[in-house]
Amino acid sequence: MRRSTLKKLLDLDRRWIFLTVLICAIGARFVDFELPVYPKAGVRAMYDKIEEVAAKNGTIIVSMDYDPSSKPELEPLSRALLRHAFSRKVKVIAMTHNPNGQRLAQTVLEETASEFDVKYGDDYVLLGYKAGSGTLVINMGQDFRDAFSKDHAGKDLASFAVTRELTSIAQIDYVISVSASAYWESWMIYGHDRYGFPYGVGVTGVIAPDIFPFLQTGQVTGLVGGLAGAAEYETLIKKPGMAVTGMKPQSAIHMLLVLFVLFGNFVFFYDLVLKRRQEKGHREERRT
């Protein structure tokens, strides 16, 4: 290869790169290939915890603390979690700390519930949105019915089997926050640390590294990070959905990025070698 060709490759018009990314992202959706998804320890911990709750016929809280902008990344996890819980007859109390999240939570809950033989009130309840975040969590710990006396539709919680006996979140067997911002922290600081319930977190890929330290200390039991984590969860419950499908374009783009970086470096070093050789040639020419 000549140096001029290499130079051209090094200064490749970025529109070619954009086009490759686009083709890769769209192409991966249509090409049929299987990706083995292996669940990581954090994801498996959440799955195992729900199995444990199922064994004692317990209740979990799924707090869907995200809004429409992070819906594509987090909704698959909510869906997988609810499917898992409903299939194992775990009672679910759903809620959200995010003012724009109620509509999303309700849709996911209703859609997944319709796939199983579960009944509103007997097997699941939607509390809806209430302001307060940290103070709301404390309130739910001190007196659950003071924090929420009615569900999202204004029906008394005493009329539902799921919530009839509930006085504090300390009685809940597992709380999971599916969160796109700092809401997961409220649950940990004001909830888990005070009332001691087991606590799991599902967050966007960007936030996940912030939670690793708490996974290490045991303050968090179960961590699902980003779409990849959701895909792992879907694999565990043997019901591949949007996340597993989304793994294809995501994997393709990641690999493409790696290839770009490797190729760029190859060209860079090859160019360096050619340059040295040329300089050596010049020197020898001068000598002769």
Binding site: G141, Q142, D143, D146, T167, S168, A170, Q171, R194, Y195
Partner: peptide, 13 residues
């Protein structure tokens, strides 16, 4: 003004 379940809310909090 407040209420809480027994076995929770101790001085340790």
């Amino acid at each position: 003004v407040a209420s809480f379940s027994a076995m929770t809310s101790f001085k340790a909090d």
